[in-house]
Design a protein around this nucleic acid. Structure first.
Lengths: 130, 130
DNA sequence: TGACAGGTACGAAGCGCTTCGTATATTGGC
DNA sequence: GCCAATATACGAAGCGCTTCGTACCTGTCA
């Protein structure tokens, strides 16, 4: 694998990826509008453009330049990215123990019974895997 | 509560807090030595000093200046800090759903049966709380 | 065809984090 | 008393992230 530099998008990048993940491939304007709607204080159009250009260099997004108005698509999956960010936090603040993280998260999370059941099911799967 | 600015230590700060949490109140030299031992590439003595000074301003640590050699102690608890970092990540990358974070963490974590049992117990507690 | 709307490219400023060099004080031992 | 060792204080450089202004290009339409 020549994929060393690990996917660890910054805050602003994450916000943009969020739009691309939920809305699919988008133009700068579409991303800009989506963020303006979702956020309190909006950011300039050229800021989004610049970020998307940088993200293209970093291979976080793919750019289709065939039309005059470029179209951007996420080049990293949501699950993979979340996994990277999670294991990053585990290393930095939980002494490498994802279990410690899970326990901490569970002890403060408000979850519905249905959600707790979902976790329980996952635990069952993991209990007898092989 | 006048504690608005939320505890969100940076990387270097977290490393130092880790030492203070596990070793208790320490001098700059002690922190420096502990980090030198634990890490691959060490950082300069005055770097640790400067960081601790900044962390004192930020109220992340408390400083005892009675002796010539100052003694620093963590001013934030490990659990609280972890909680802040976690909810920060939940907001930034998991759409505000701690459950999504837990599921993601569980699906990639390698945990022993005993640990899984621990989670199960926690789930039971939360199931019928009131 | 000329002006405008809307697109991309790019340089640079501002800020926070991290790092360290250097200046300056204090202490202990000879 | 003096020197070496060891402290703290502080300024500033370097870097990455974020932001935006400005320049420039390209269609459209009256």
């Amino acid at each position: 694998m020549a994929n060393r530099p690990a996917i660890r998008p910054t805050n602003a990048e994450l916000a943009i990826l969020g739009v691309l993940w939920s809305n699919g491939a988008s133009t700068v304007r579409e991303v800009h509008d989506a963020l303006k709607e979702a956020r309190d204080e909006a950011v300039g159009y050229t800021t989004i453009l610049k970020l998307l250009q940088i993200m293209t260099e970093k291979k976080l997004v793919k750019r289709d330049t065939r039309a005059r108005t470029h179209v951007y698509a996420a080049a990293v999956s949501e699950a993979t990215t979340r996994g990277h960010l999670l294991s990053d936090l585990v290393d930095r603040a939980f002494g490498g123990s994802s279990l410690a993280l899970v326990l901490q998260a569970l002890s403060s999370a408000r979850a519905t019974p249905a959600e707790l059941e979902q976790i329980r099911r996952l635990l069952d799967e993991r209990k007898a895997p092989r």
